[in-house]
């Protein structure tokens, strides 16, 4: 009743404001209108996704991700023709590609995970909140009000979808190149068993999802860092430095004690999916590690973002 009273001036006005008022009934006073928060959530998410995916910078990053498997494929084709398979040097899977194009996807993911994929994810995740703050659009989003927790949730979901897209682009492009340049057939797993091409492709989908999960954990770190600053470049650099420092630490045997706790340690454990039976302990270790990173850094981002003064 008091809200109906309060609505007086706006609702009864016959001035120019009424033209606007007339175009919709005010939802605040419409009982039951809020029944569809999911629809509003999806609408906001779509808006967020279109901002991410229609941005030239992000499209260029995806193009780079698509180009690298092509380069690797061509390079392998040129070098592998006379000599046959590799001789144990270089990244994992490099020897198998010439025999089966499906392995190009695994090789590409392995190569890109060292730098390019984390870079791409760091750019989008680090930019997520800091970019809005830097542009000043954050204050308008919050005054709308988008809701701080809701905005953060949407941002994270959108970045995770971008991670999926990034990994998907690598896998899809590698498969296309692999099929074009090399023979494709039943897949011989790391444990020596051979499975059909269909089953092999299914495993590849799981590998892609696993890598996307690893990137989603990195994205949670990126989101947290992003809430700490209004300079997107700073946030992006910080995330990348963190990822690289973790990789370096992971490669130093003297630090073996901390290795399992490093955010990057389990990234390449997707080879657990390429054994028969699947090496579940290692796989679950990896997934648990990602989940814990998402929870910890999600909580940091939330705690920071819901209490911070927005002065940008």
């Amino acid at each position: 009743m008091s809200t109906a009273e309060a609505s007086g001036p706006a609702a009864e006005a016959s001035g120019p404001a009424a033209d606007l008022t007339g175009t919709r009934l005010d939802p605040v006073r419409q009982p039951g209108y809020r029944a569809g928060p999911v629809i509003h959530w999806i609408r906001f998410l779509c808006s967020e996704l279109s901002l991410i995916f229609l941005r030239w910078r992000n499209l260029a990053l995806l193009a780079v991700l698509a180009a690298i498997p092509v380069l690797i494929g061509v390079a392998l084709k040129l070098s592998a023709s006379p000599a046959g398979g590799g001789s144990g040097q270089g990244p994992a899977f490099i020897g198998q590609v010439a025999g089966n194009g499906v392995f190009l996807a695994l090789l590409s993911l392995t190569v890109l995970l060292t730098l390019v994929l984390p870079l791409v994810v760091a750019v989008v995740a680090g930019d997520s909140v800091a970019g809005e703050a830097g542009h000043g659009t954050l204050r308008y989003l919050l005054a709308i009000p988008a809701g701080r927790t809701r905005l953060l949730g949407i941002k994270y979901v959108a970045v995770v979808i971008f991670c999926l897209a990034a990994c998907g682009v690598v896998t899809a492009m590698s498969l296309a190149m692999g099929a074009a340049l090399f023979p494709v057939g039943p897949v011989t797993l790391l444990s020596g068993t051979t499975i059909s091409l269909g089953a092999g492709l299914l495993r590849l989908v799981f590998v892609t999802l696993y890598v996307a999960g690893a990137m989603a954990a990195l994205a949670a770190i990126g989101l947290a860092v992003s809430t700490l600053t209004e300079h997107p470049i700073g946030a992006i650099a910080a995330v990348l430095v963190l990822a690289l420092a973790s990789e370096v630490t992971d490669s130093v045997p003297q630090f073996a004690v901390v290795h399992p706790y490093l955010p990057t340690h389990w990234w390449l454990s997707f080879d657990a999916l390429l054994r028969s039976p699947i090496a579940w302990p290692e796989l679950l270790h990896g997934l648990t590690s990602f989940g814990i990173y998402v929870i910890i850094f999600g909580a940091i981002a939330w705690a920071r973002f819901t209490t911070a003064d927005v002065t940008s």
């Binding site: 939802p27 609408r43 659009t137 308008y140």
Partner: peptide, 30 residues
Amino acid sequence: SLVEGPAFYSQLSGKANLARYDAADRTADR
């Protein structure tokens, strides 16, 4: 509200910018 000058997404059109802010409003009818 208008706080400390306008702030919009420079890559979007005026209309798309308003659509962006409208999408963020959970009380706005699509």
